[in-house]
Computed example of a mutant assay.
Amino acid sequence: MSAYFWFEGIPFPAMLYKREIIKESRDKFVIRDEDTVIVTYPKSGTNWLIEIVCLIQTKGNPKWIQSVPTWERSPWIETKKELSMLINMEGPRLMSSHLPFHLFPKSFFRSKAKVIYVIRNPRDVLVSGYFFGRNTNLIDNPESLGTYIERFLKGNVPYGSWFEHTRDWLSMRKNDNFLLLSYEDMKENTRGTIRKICDFLGKKLEPDELDLVLKYSSFQAMKENKMYNFSIIRKDVNINGLVLMRKGVPGDWKNHFTVAQAENFDKVFQEKMAGFSPGLFPWK
């Protein structure tokens, strides 16, 4: 894993992240009461949620999302350039992070800031991460899906173990300033999810405004939005014709796992997520 550095047990792609910035964001960055943070494990629907929240803020008007890149509307806490942007931003801020619980800014835990956390079937997360990684030079590309499954189950992938990330963040689920969403529910009932986010953020949308949020956060609309679809990304990241949005379909893992791989994954999932109600995880 030469393309990584490790910080407190978590591997980070060295091209995008710096140890001192992650440390600074944890120890010094001040999250304010009025801020909203979108937190996910990678490949769980982060950018889709950012589009939805941004559209809720503009009552469905697409001008903002079509003129400002995703990472400037909701900067990442753990990258140098975007952390500086956040520090200098006035008023309520929207920000994003994949950071595990123990590396998250300490100031958050003393604040009333709101976190929206999205979980997704880890099998789909794994497949999405595998194909994403194969099209970039950000990580060491595994020779096969089987190799990647082994790495994923051990936590030797960007941001570490899905199981630990999810377990630790779910410890917040009864807090008033924490909203838990699932990618699968977002897909199945997008309108209901938007209403849930509005309630959580104290926003009110008229029916026609909600229709606009639905329209401009659809898979097709986002695929065509240049401010979202990676067509303006940094030139030093080799993206080999990368498309950020591949399928966006729950259950795609079934097209890629062998029966043995699926059984082994289930076994590890049961062990690692013991103690959680199965109803918490809405995937089949």
Rank of each mutant, 00 (worst) to 15 (best):
Phe5Met: 01
Phe5Ser: 00
Glu8Ser: 12
Pro11Glu: 01
Pro13Ser: 09
Met15Asn: 07
Leu16Pro: 02
Tyr17Pro: 04
Glu24His: 14
Asp27Cys: 08
Asp27Tyr: 01
Phe29Cys: 15
Phe29Thr: 13
Asp33Thr: 03
Glu34Leu: 03
Thr46Gln: 07
Ile50Asp: 10
Glu51Lys: 02
Ile52Tyr: 04
Leu55Pro: 15
Lys59Tyr: 10
Trp64Met: 15
Ser67Pro: 02
Ile77Val: 14
Glu78Cys: 08
Lys80Arg: 14
Glu82Gly: 06
Gly91Leu: 06
Ser97Leu: 04
Leu103Val: 07
Ser107Pro: 11
Ser107Cys: 12
Arg110His: 08
Lys112Ile: 12
Ala113Leu: 00
Ala113Asn: 08
Tyr117Ile: 05
Arg123Asp: 00
Ser128Asp: 13
Tyr130Pro: 12
Arg134Val: 04
Asp140Lys: 06
Asp140Phe: 03
Gly146Phe: 01
Lys154Asp: 12
Gly155Asp: 03
Pro158Gln: 03
Pro158Asn: 06
Pro158Val: 00
Tyr159Gln: 04
Gly160Thr: 04
Trp162Pro: 04
Phe163His: 01
Glu164Tyr: 01
Asp168Thr: 00
Asp168Asn: 05
Ser171Asn: 07
Ser171Tyr: 02
Met172Ser: 14
Arg173Met: 15
Asn177Pro: 08
Phe178Cys: 09
Lys187Ala: 13
Lys203Cys: 10
Lys204Ile: 07
Leu205Cys: 05
Glu206His: 14
Pro207Ala: 05
Glu209Asp: 11
Leu212Gln: 15
Ser217Val: 14
Ser218Gln: 07
Ser218His: 06
Lys223Cys: 10
Asn225Arg: 06
Met227Leu: 06
Arg234Gly: 09
Asp236Gln: 04
Asp236Lys: 02
Val237Asp: 10
Gly241Met: 00
Leu242Tyr: 07
Val243Ile: 06
Met245Thr: 07
Arg246Cys: 01
Val249Ala: 07
Pro250Thr: 02
Asn255Asp: 12
His256Lys: 05
Thr258His: 07
Thr258Trp: 02
Ala260Ser: 15
Gln261Phe: 04
Asn264His: 14
Phe265Asn: 11
Phe269Val: 07
Glu271Ala: 06
Ala274Ser: 15
Gly279Leu: 05
Gly279Ser: 14
Leu280Gly: 05
